[in-house]
């Protein structure tokens, strides 16, 4: 199996926007100021017509993301997955990740590499 067989699942329904993935990545890859391997994007907060709120965070791997290939080869999870405080990120083969989708609304699987 190569790194190309693996994807990144993010259940963005519960992403709290805590920046852990961003800083874990910066430190793992020693990225300089202004550079990111993953970025937490944000929609809202805005009030919807029914009075409830849209307030969603969405981590987006950048072109600098290599899925922590070195870590993965050693048998470690990508650092963002390992440290995610809300535990909404998973790293696995596409097959394994896809199995979860029917029971996990508001989830994406990224093909990064």
């Amino acid at each position: 199996m190569s790194i190309k067989d693996y994807g990144l699942l993010i259940n963005y329904d519960f992403c709290t926007g805590c920046h852990t993935c961003e800083i874990a990545c910066k430190k793992e890859h020693d990225l300089p100021e202004g550079q990111w391997g993953i970025r937490v994007l944000q929609d809202g907060p805005r009030e919807k017509e029914d009075g409830t709120w849209e307030y969603t965070y969405m981590p987006l791997p950048t072109t600098l993301c290599d899925l922590c290939e070195e870590r993965v080869e050693e048998g470690r999870l990508p650092t963002c997955v390992h440290h995610c405080q809300a535990r909404v990120m998973q790293f696995d083969t596409y097959d394994e990740l896809a199995k979860q989708l029917p029971n996990m609304p508001r989830t994406v699987i990224y093909a990064v590499k």
């Binding site: 920046h19 852990t20 874990a24 430190k27 390992h82 440290h83 405080q85 535990r87």
Partner: peptide
């Protein structure tokens, strides 16, 4: 520094402040 996945208090997760410990 890494979060300890065998410590069930935090299950390997860490916040920004520990991740920036160095």
């Amino acid at each position: 520094i890494e979060g300890d996945p065998n410590q069930t208090y935090n299950n390997g997760t860490l916040c920004m402040r520990c991740l920036n410990m160095l």
